[in-house]
Amino acid sequence: MNILVCLKQILDPDIPARDFRIDPERREAVRGSADLVTNIFCENALETALQLKDAHDGMITVLSHGSEEAEDVLRKALAMKADEAALVLDDDAAQADPLQAARVLAAAARKLGSFDVIMVGRESGDWGVGQTGGLLAEELGVPFIALVEHLDVDEGKLRIRRQTDTGTEIFEVTPPVVISITNSENNLPRIPKTRDVMKSYRKPLTTIAVADLSLTPSSDSYFRLVEISVPEKETRCELVEGHNLEQRIDAFAHRVAEIANTTR
């Protein structure tokens, strides 16, 4: 299997709430001292790809559309044992709408080779719009499966398991296909070995200038952000009182029962 995993670099979504601010001019989060990290669902995707390769052999190429800083994301992926890495260098990548991103990724994928499976994360930890995977599939003219947690190969066909609201479904797929990966207990990203981190810096990394993809600029934007704000939504939590734990549990139980008995 020839696998392409798309990786997005984002602002660390785990910064404490008190440090989170929006720049009203730029209409985006203030970077401040936050790190840039690989979007977690993209790491789940890479882990899923690595497991497929471990079980069935294959070749994993990682691809990112970003600024020079996105090289970190690709080096980390190489340290996790991806085989090849490519960066579409674009200083405006962070402002790209999902359709622009999908067009860039599709053009880069065509340039890099022929892939059986193309993986993306289900959504990014910054804007979280989650449209790129489906659009990428349409750009490439192949099926799209969302919320995948595992895949297997059986006689040249892919068996792809994805989460639904009530359980799971298995797709039988003749490649190629684009899939979006969600987190599951089985695809927590592996931690690269120190030795592999060192080695990753000596591995080749293909850089593609976005201009070299010869994309025709779209006449209109896919959508436009017109408003962004941080909600002030904090309630004052009333801690139940009592002289001892038993009394506090009793008070807590009464508050819970009051609601429970009226909704029944």
Partner: peptide, 14 residues
């Protein structure tokens, strides 16, 4: 947006 930390309004022109 931002994992629930912000509210965003988008205009879909197409």
């Amino acid at each position: 947006a931002y994992g629930g930390r912000a509210n965003a309004v988008y205009e879909l022109g197409r």
